[in-house]
Amino acid sequence: MKRPGRRGTQLACLFLLGCLLFNFPMLALFNVPAKILGLPVLYAYVFTVWLLLIVLLAVVMERKD
């Protein structure tokens, strides 16, 4: 079988990172009635992680190999 290559490995890691961050123990940490910069922490957390994931994805995909 063909080896997935550098980009493939990076993507697999990113996928696992996303699965981890959008899952039970992490979400529970932010499932509290507190606010950060006027925003509920869970709301802020989810959107921040989401954006981070997209930025990393863009970096991996748009970089010339």
């Binding site: 493939g8 993507l11 990113l14 996928f15 959008f22 994931l53 995909m61």
Partner: peptide, 13 residues
């Protein structure tokens, strides 16, 4: 929407 975001990470493969 988060599910598709996670899935799309693997789209290249």
């Amino acid at each position: 929407y988060i599910g598709p975001t996670l899935m799309i990470v693997l789209w290249w493969l």
